[in-house]
Amino acid sequence: MAGALRASPLFLILLTLGAYLLGVAVSRRTQSSLANPTLIAILIVGLALRLTGLTYFQYFQSAQLLHFLLGPATVALAIPLVRSLEHLRRSLLPTLLALLTGSVTGALSAYGTVRLCGGDRLLALTMLPKSLTTPIALDVSQTIGGLPALTAVFGIAAGVLMAVCLPFLMKALRVTEPAAAGLAAGTAGSGIATARVVPMGVLPLAFAGVAIGVNGLITATLAPLLLRALRHLH
C-alpha cells in the first residue's frame, strides 16, 4: 500500500513541484544565479529517489505529465518569436552567421575536449550534440553512433551550467545586446538556458527560441559531414 503510493504519479509529481518551489524560494532568498531552481529541484529529487529506493525509470514514468508539457511549451516560443519578428528580420544575416559559427564551435569543441582529456571516441560522440534540444540531440547521437540517453543527460548539464553562468558571462564577455545574449544562451544551452532568459524579456527569448531550432538544424545536417572530415584528417 505504502509502496504503491510512493511510486504513484500523485506523490512523485507533488515531490517534483515541492522540490521546484523550494528551489525557487532558495533562489529568491539568496538572489544568486548559482541557486538555480531547476538544479536544486533535480538534486532534491535525486536525494528523494535514494531515500525511497525508487529507480529513476519508476520516477520518470510517474512524472511524465510534467515532461509532456515541454512539447506545448516549445510551441509557445512562437509567441515571443512573432512579437520580435521585426527585429529578427532586420538582423537576419548576423543571426544566421552567428548561429553557424556557434553550432560548429559547439559540436567540434565538445568532441575535441573529450578526446584531448583522454575520453574515448564513444564518449566524444555522445558529448557532441549536447547543446541541442533533447529530441534533436537524441536523434543526432543515434545517427553518429553515440549513447542517446547519456547525450540527454549531458544536454541537461550543459543547460544548467549555461543558466547558472549566464549573468557572469554576460558581464565578463561584455555581451550587452539582449538579442546576442538570448541567441548565444539558446545555442549553448537550449531549453534550460532559454528558461533562464524568460525574465530578461521578449526579445532575448525570441532569439533563444530561434537558436534552439536553427542550431538543431545546422548540427543535425553538419555533424555527420564534420565527422567524416575529421576521419580523413587522421
Binding site: T16, T38, A41, G46, Y56, F60, A63, H67, A195, R196
Partner: peptide, 13 residues
C-alpha cells in the same frame, strides 16, 4: 519551463 526540465534532468542519477 524551468520546472518542466526536472523529470528529464533527474536522469543524471
Amino acid at each position: 519551463l524551468p520546472l518542466l526540465f526536472v523529470p528529464a534532468g533527474a536522469g543524471v542519477f
